[in-house]
Design a protein around this nucleic acid. Sequence first.
DNA 1: TTGAAAGCGCTAACAT
DNA 2: ATGTTAGCGCTTTCAA
Lengths: 338, 338
Amino acid sequence: MTIKDVAAYCGVSVSTVSRVLNDHPDVRDDVRERVRAAIRECNFVPNNSARALVSSRSTAIGVVSRGVDNPFLSSLIRVLGREIHQRGYTMVLQQIPTSADEVRAAAELEREKKLLGVIFLGGRFNYTEQELRQLTVPFVCCTYTNTFGDLREDAYSSVSIRDEEEACKAVEHLLSHGHRRIAVLLDDAGDSSIGQLRFQGYKRALEKHGLDYDPGLVALTGAYDMKDAYDGVCALIDGGADFTALMVISDALAMAAMKALTDRGRKVPEDCSVIAIDGLDMTNYTVPTLTTLCQPAAEMARESVDMLTGIIEGTGVHRHKLVETTLREGASVAAPRR
Amino acid sequence: MTIKDVAAYCGVSVSTVSRVLNDHPDVRDDVRERVRAAIRECNFVPNNSARALVSSRSTAIGVVSRGVDNPFLSSLIRVLGREIHQRGYTMVLQQIPTSADEVRAAAELEREKKLLGVIFLGGRFNYTEQELRQLTVPFVCCTYTNTFGDLREDAYSSVSIRDEEEACKAVEHLLSHGHRRIAVLLDDAGDSSIGQLRFQGYKRALEKHGLDYDPGLVALTGAYDMKDAYDGVCALIDGGADFTALMVISDALAMAAMKALTDRGRKVPEDCSVIAIDGLDMTNYTVPTLTTLCQPAAEMARESVDMLTGIIEGTGVHRHKLVETTLREGASVAAPRR
DNA sequence: TTGAAAGCGCTAACAT
DNA sequence: ATGTTAGCGCTTTCAA
């Protein structure tokens, strides 16, 4: 069933059907109705590939998100959708597995959907100029910046928190409560990841306050996974590690960590304080409520869209915005007992 | 930058470039290398719209999931991806907002990606034959069935749990522990939703065991939302409702419910037991661990793909598979104190 | 207000 | 082994 069949079905030309499809004014009302009826009766659904192939301009902004089940990214996507729509653009969302290549995905999407620009979510930290040449539209990295790549600063935009600094702040929050033996839980997924940056922040905080870094206080998870996090913390405890507080690199892993502590007979926060970074809505509902540094998702989404539309419309230039987290005091941090 | 440009760039014809792109054997090795180099140097990325438009057959199976942040669906998607890939097909994932029309989305995707079939996740319960005629390929509803629509049974496949019966089982689990005053938490999103079916199950369990249905023991959430669930349970308690156990229609809402109970000074399970339906991995990590009826996500995914590929390959017919949940005993259910 | 016709970028016969 | 060419379904001039 094509536009041609519909045209034949109601005795008009394909251009007329096309006009109806695209709400062009130059169609007589009765003809318009006749075509509409035909479309309905034939269950005709236009082929977007063909449309995209031929139509020159679009209003599409691509959002390429790596990781299907990262809840922080999900909340970001929701706000992005709203912001993009508000500015009169259309969001084309592409979620890809963590193992996939987001740049390639974006490049293909750019051609398929005639994108005006791309917003990357949860991508890698080490893009090269070479690989980004696949893209011919402007892009912004949301939640991260190209720390380890060789991109020129004026070649893209980014919105992110200072991961290292914020992790340092998290540890300092624990320090300010009197903790001195502070453990850390992180994923050892890759070397150029958010986890590593936050781990650096952990070490810097210790150093800054004259504490020794003790590798025996590091719990590693093989993957970014709650079971692994749970096991990691259990192993730490079972190994006899002596700590009164735990810094976790993300809210999701912190949930598993609190469970491990509880199951091993350590009350949170009495026996062990826990702090994390992210600020998921969900961790408002853990018992106890998680204390965490919230990333300003709404602000990050707004900034990303602002920057991108600025460049698309020629009114802005590439920038790199750093946003601040906000401490959300739950009930998972207290002074150490001893 | 098109295939034509690449062809010109290295002095061959477009067909040769096309052959290289599609790994056709009939290209001399040195030519193949030359073309590959050109593709790299030109940062050429093929236009999938054009490819899809012209190529007749594909191996694509569409997965259309309504609801970006339903964690149960996320886990399903992961398994579906694996299963589809294993059978030599390609998964084309489309996640759409709850407000969107999944049938229309699927129909557009069908044409764009030349789908062989569609798997719907989290869709509506009331499809009409008429609207489904937009689709010209077979489809299966995963996690639900067309309870309220007029689809003929042999027009589609489905894999789901018996929502009403399972909810009934959940309540009976509470009854078996000696509970008699059992409250329920549900979303009043729509009338034809999973929530309603499970609510029916709640009422049936009471009836079956000679207990009166008390509207005063129903907590409603406006939306499917943790904050609403939390407020709903608080309102129930503050209103003086007298109950020793709570049945929640989903794991996510149960997390919020347990938090509300805890915040209002009711210990789970000592003062109030909680049971839910879903079996998210995450609720293994709540404190206390949630007792819940687990939907067999892996089995559901496998069955869905089996059914669909069976029909695609002509070796199967449309069926409606009902799967059983498994009780995962956490620590959120105990005998009532009084 | 309508229709005819030229492509959009690509694949797949068909020729060579 | 490589090139030529006819479309895929649609939008968009341009003419009528």
